[in-house]
Design a protein around this nucleic acid. Structure first.
Length: 509
RNA sequence: GCCGCGUUGGUCAAGGGGUUAAGACGCCUCCCUUUCACGGAGGAAUCACGGGUUCGAAUCCCGUACGUGGUACCA
């Protein structure tokens, strides 16, 4: 074990649109691990499938990582010592390695057309074969450099016949994946198929590209979703054939994030169906124009998003659930990453956000809230938003809740909830409020304590219980029975606004 | 079908031979507040099943069931 090697980890997404929360969690774990070990976090773009190119998808990934604060040390954007970091720009590299494998007898040319492959599967299905794979059973019946004579192969190659390069899997061998999270996993190569390594367009498949690039970019640890586990033997064999097992990355397969109801991997569709975001940020499909909501726009704080993601598959063994980024960097450990998948619970996700909003300073929240309110037609210019945020943040689970909870500070209620106070309203109370106005007008100081004192003194001279009066005042000011202490509200509203709303309220009853 | 992985309340989970099987979310009750929250105090609810091993199993072993991932010239 080369313990002195600098830790280098990578996130290698395919830019096909949207960034799933599971992807962000993979980024997070990579990032935490890199920071904890003073290593490097690399972003590599796996764009080898040219048929799946999506406009803007790569930029979107940068935007998401930026919002989350999980920015890579090396990427196509920032560059780095192992550039290029976009696989489409590394195309020639892979061909040479594929060729090397063919020469060594670990891979071979295959000339089968998609139709022939389909026919093969049909044939195997009809024969009741328990494997429908292109493998040691079936490859002799196909058109490839193993089944064909050398002359035929050369002829086909010289004729420019389209070909792929497939790995040649030897049956009856055991490949062991030593997973950092799950321990030893054994695979019998008899059940592994001859996967395509190099496609007919000269691009590598994922299998070849990860191995080659992880080696070339000196990656030390490879974290990826559990869905990759079945193809691990291919990658391990490739490492063995190309670069040696001693140089191989250490693998860690992360548990899946499952849909809340039923079972299966959480997908964008589940979010649409159940009404919660799955992507980090809003994503608009450039072709269909369809918008998929993101956590950011739903009103999540990036601190909360990272925090909740960190707990979806890991905990530190104590009762602590709220972690700052620096705590996570300090405490994260692969040993405590779970083995089994977790169903995503949006209620719990919101709880995390609520906790972060409650403990956030008004200063931290101010820029986000200002933008949010302004975008929603609320002019915050003449009021102390700082103070308002402090007053109401406890009742905001999502950032977007600030709209509803701050609106009445800026905009007088058009109508008030008459029904909630109508029964308590009588001539005596009307007189009380009418005579309250000149008292307020004459008030020299306008703060929560003096207003309350004035109000209560006036109530006692009228011999009315203050409770009901406060409720009425609240509805006059806010429009409904909600919000923080009513005298705090009058303070922020100011004398003029308070009096105007009382006058307006009396008129509506 | 075949191969891999998994299974502690509704959900997230701690616990890895002896525990009254933590805690959190959600739900319910009460207190605080003549509002809504926040906060506080309680409550209901769990080791998939069957065999072993053991004085003793949620914990170790083997089966079974169920779930899930893969089985593309997608990643």
């Amino acid at each position: 074990m080369e313990t002195n090697k600098q830790v280098r980890v990578r996130f290698a997404p395919s830019p096909t649109g949207g960034l799933h929360l599971g992807g962000v969690r993979t980024v997070l774990y990579n990032y935490l691990f890199a920071r904890q070990h003073n290593g490097k976090f690399i972003l590599r773009i796996e764009d080898t499938d040219q048929t799946r190119f999506v406009e803007g998808a790569e930029q979107y990934i940068y935007d998401c990582l930026h919002w989350c604060g999980l920015t890579p040390d090396e990427s196509p954007l920032t560059g780095g010592p192992f550039a290029p970091y976009r696989q489409s720009e590394r195309k020639p590299i892979y061909y040479n390695y594929a060729l090397q494998l063919v020469k060594a007898g670990y891979a071979y040319y295959a000339f089968d057309t998609p139709e022939e492959l389909e026919a093969m599967r049909e044939r195997l299905k009809a024969a009741n074969s328990h494997s429908l794979q292109y493998d040691h059973h079936s490859r002799m019946g196909m058109r490839n450099s193993i089944s064909l004579s050398e002359e035929e192969t050369i002829q086909l190659l010289e004729n420019g016949t389209p070909f792929v390069i497939r790995i040649k899997i030897q049956p009856n061998e055991t490949v062991i994946c030593n997973d950092l999270i799950r321990g030893e996993i054994h695979f019998d190569t008899s059940a592994v198929d001859d996967k395509v390594l190099l496609k007919a367009d000269g691009m590598p498949t994922y299998h070849l590209a990860v191995v080659v690039d992880d080696y070339l970019m000196q990656i030390t640890h490879a974290f990826r979703g559990e869905e990759w586990l079945p193809s691990a033997p291919i990658h391990i064999l490739l490492w063995q054939y190309l670069f040696g097992l001693d140089n191989m990355v250490k693998w860690a397969h992360l548990p899946l994030i499952l849909k809340p109801d039923g079972n299966g991997k959480l997908s964008k569709r589940d979010g649409d169906r159940l009404g919660f975001p799955v992507y980090a940020m809003n994503w608009t499909d450039p072709v269909t124009g369809e918008l998929t909501k993101g956590f950011k726009e739903t009103g999540f704080l990036p601190e909360a998003f990272n925090n909740l993601l960190s707990q979806l598959g890991w905990n530190d063994g104590t009762e602590q659930e709220i972690f700052s980024m620096s705590e996570l960097i300090e405490k994260f450990s692969l040993q405590r990453v779970h083995i089994s998948g977790a169903k995503f619970d949006f209620e719990k996700a919101k709880w995390f956000n609520h906790e972060w909003i409650k403990s956030a300073s008004a200063k931290r929240l101010l820029p986000d809230i200002t933008t949010l309110l302004n975008n929603n037609g609320i002019d915050t210019g003449n009021k102390n938003l700082f103070e308002i945020i402090d007053l109401i943040k406890d009742r905001c689970t999502l950032l977007t809740d600030f709209i509803e909870h701050t609106r009445y500070f800026f905009i007088p209620p058009k109508t008030i909830d008459v029904a909630s106070i109508a029964q308590k309203w009588d001539e005596k109370k009307k007189t009380f409020f009418e005579s309250l106005i000149p008292i307020f007008e004459k008030a020299e100081e306008w703060n929560s304590i003096t207003i309350e004192t004035l109000f209560k003194a006036h109530a006692s001279t009228h011999e009315i219980k203050i409770g009901e009066l406060q409720m009425i005042l609240r509805v006059f000011l806010v429009g409904c029975k909600a919000g923080p202490g009513v005298f705090h509200i009058t303070t922020i509203l100011g004398k003029e606004d308070t009096i105007n709303r009382i006058i307006s309220g009396i008129k509506q009853l």
